[in-house]
Simulated assay, not measured.
Amino acid sequence: MAQGTIGDSEFDRDTAVTARAGEPGVFDARLSEGWTILRAVNGGYLLALTARALGAVLPHPDPFTVTAHYLTPSEPGPAVVRTEVIRTGRTMSTGSARLLQTDAEGREVERLRVTASYGDLAALPDDVRTTAKPFAIPPYEHCPGGEDAPGGLPVISGSTEIAKRLDLRLDPATAGWALGTPSGRGEMRAWFGLADGRDADPLSLLLTVDALPPTAFEMGLQGWVPTVELTTHIRCRPAPGPLRVGIVTRNLAGGFLEEDAEVWDAQDRLVAQSRQLARVLLG
């Protein structure tokens, strides 16, 4: 695989949007099969693509907070993003976007609705006052990828297209589910990067927060865990190098669970946080 760089990588090509002539704020896109999980298009990838369209109409360069409601499952193929500028200010701007596809009867079906505020991460002050600390995880070389486990790690290797595009190394303490011995704890931790070596940027962080196996797997559950709502906060531009992602679930009830994610960069900075509500579909 060719070395990827920011602006010239598979991720950038697959999240590209094209402004539609004569329709301001409307963009055409194609959802790539390369970011699917058992034919369902990954929610983080959809979020990044939609955020790219919003970034084209808002005057500020970086997503600060992005909230998405997933309405219907997306499929690989043509899509349209319809954006609206809600407010623009000196330091922040806010907009909304709808991601739609056409069904077999020729009707537009809304897949995703997003509200986001953008700003300039480079303009933020350097002052940091925090009690947050990077979570413990073994060194990269001691964490298994899909090629390291007997039979491969499901959902990391072989069973999904997205796995081929990620360099994902699970903390062995949260990989028991893949070997039939889940810990029973709602935790998932991993080193994360893109397989072509593209460094992370604010847009790709929207993919990162939703790219690990579900915490439900380590709780002894199997099945699809579709996202209902996902809110992501981008805190600063990540430094080059692999990211560390940790996700925790504290409450699974009524067939729904929350997942709280933290993303840390190579300089031990908290670069992204997210919370999502997801359904647990057993079977």
Score class of each variant (00 low, 15 high):
2 A>Y: 00
4 G>T: 06
15 T>P: 04
20 R>N: 02
29 A>E: 06
29 A>V: 08
29 A>T: 12
35 W>R: 03
36 T>E: 05
41 V>Y: 03
45 Y>Q: 03
54 L>H: 07
55 G>F: 10
55 G>K: 09
56 A>Y: 04
56 A>K: 15
59 P>A: 07
59 P>N: 11
65 T>R: 14
67 T>K: 00
71 L>H: 05
71 L>Y: 02
71 L>M: 13
72 T>Q: 15
73 P>S: 06
73 P>M: 09
75 E>T: 15
79 A>R: 04
79 A>W: 07
80 V>F: 01
81 V>A: 07
86 I>C: 02
94 T>N: 06
95 G>S: 07
101 Q>A: 07
110 E>F: 01
113 R>Y: 08
113 R>Q: 14
123 A>N: 01
126 D>H: 10
128 V>N: 04
131 T>K: 05
133 K>F: 07
141 E>P: 00
141 E>W: 01
143 C>G: 04
149 A>S: 09
150 P>T: 02
153 L>T: 15
156 I>T: 11
165 R>P: 00
166 L>D: 01
166 L>Y: 01
168 L>G: 04
171 D>C: 11
173 A>D: 15
181 T>A: 14
183 S>F: 10
186 G>W: 13
186 G>C: 13
188 M>V: 15
193 G>I: 01
197 G>F: 02
198 R>Q: 11
201 D>I: 10
202 P>E: 04
204 S>K: 07
214 P>D: 11
215 T>H: 11
216 A>H: 06
218 E>Y: 08
226 P>C: 08
228 V>M: 10
229 E>Y: 00
232 T>G: 04
235 R>G: 01
236 C>I: 00
237 R>V: 15
238 P>R: 08
239 A>H: 14
244 R>S: 12
246 G>N: 11
247 I>D: 11
250 R>M: 02
254 G>K: 01
255 G>N: 07
265 D>R: 05
265 D>T: 07
269 R>A: 09
269 R>E: 12
271 V>R: 13
271 V>M: 12
273 Q>G: 03
273 Q>D: 04
274 S>T: 13
276 Q>S: 15
282 L>R: 15
